[in-house]
Design a protein around this nucleic acid. Structure first.
Lengths: 168, 168
DNA sequence: TTGGAAAGTCAACAAGGCTGACGTATTGTC
DNA sequence: GACAATACGTCAGCCTTGTTGACTTTCCAA
């Protein structure tokens, strides 16, 4: 099947744009995403939290002082849905909601010490797996991985992704 | 660990195993997965189905005649959960459940014509996005993408992924 | 001062996970 | 032939996390 390292650009395309190759890509995403969330899920389950809590904690950690509205646009859920999660995190003393100084309508979200501990616990677990996958695959593969994923995002999501990219 | 900028191989690691690089990888997975499911989700929403239906239809299409048990182990859900989805698909005439010939306890699942049409509609949408991402990123990147994702899977899931890999 | 944005709340609902228990064929084993 | 195990289906109930709709409070800005 067109495996011949034959000619220039067209055969190159044929190498990876067949329906079969695309199906493999689709299933790779499906199975990998399950691995990606498996470790944090275990920890969260023991604590009575879910993935939604993880996401909130992650992005508050990434952007301390972020507003609820900003978080909403990143997470792409309704405020009622986010609020339910946020409320439990605040009640449990993991997140602090501070009234805005310039605009007092806004709430600026911060992790407490306990929240920071949970974030670290979760992201340690998730990073361990990703580190091992990265190490296994090598730097070239990591670049490709990120390139494809970025190309797969919706433009709006890509903006949120790229926003803090200076660290890259 | 072993962050010491010591020898050759570790410095290579330092290029892409910083916490910041790992965080970018984590967010890339998060944002990309949303893009990955966005198009099928829209179609499914209009039809009154959900992601669970998509997954069932996808894997029945991939392995026609698969048994319920096999599907359970691929999807990693309970039989009650799968059954709810499967029941509606059968009622709606998208999936056919045939009693096993050797082992009559087993049910072998097949897509009907209508089911095949839905599968095609969904996977066309999903493949379009992946094809465009692949094309954008180039063949090298696609290899890296698949390599990292495969390394991120749980071993059991990797087995399901690799099972039909002869097509690769 | 008044309109509207931001935030929060209450209620109701649905999808899709889960556990536990039970029923029914069918198959393999002693 | 009896019995245990397997494959599947189902009922009931629970949880998380998403949704819509309606409403209030707070506050900024025109």
């Amino acid at each position: 099947m067109a495996d011949g390292p034959g000619n220039a650009q067209t055969s190159e395309s044929l190498l990876f744009l067949t329906d079969e190759q695309l199906r493999k890509g689709i299933e790779a995403m499906f199975f990998a995403y399950r691995g990606f969330t498996a470790d944090p899920d275990r920890i969260l389950g023991e604590l009575g939290y879910g993935r939604a809590h993880h996401r909130a904690v992650h992005f508050i950690h990434r952007s301390p002082g972020t507003t609820v509205n900003n978080l909403l646009s990143i997470l792409g859920v309704t405020k009622q849905s986010l609020n339910r999660v946020l409320r439990t995190l605040i009640e449990d003393g993991l997140v602090e909601s501070r009234v805005g100084r310039q605009d007092k309508r806004e709430r600026h979200l911060h992790l407490t010490e306990a929240g920071t501990r949970l974030e670290r616990q979760l992201s340690d677990a998730q990073r361990d797996r990703m580190r091992s996958a990265f190490r296994h695959a090598g730097p070239e593969a990591v670049i490709g991985f990120r390139t494809v994923l970025e190309a797969m995002m919706d433009p709006e999501m890509r903006h949120h992704y790229t926003a803090l990219k200076e660290g890259s």
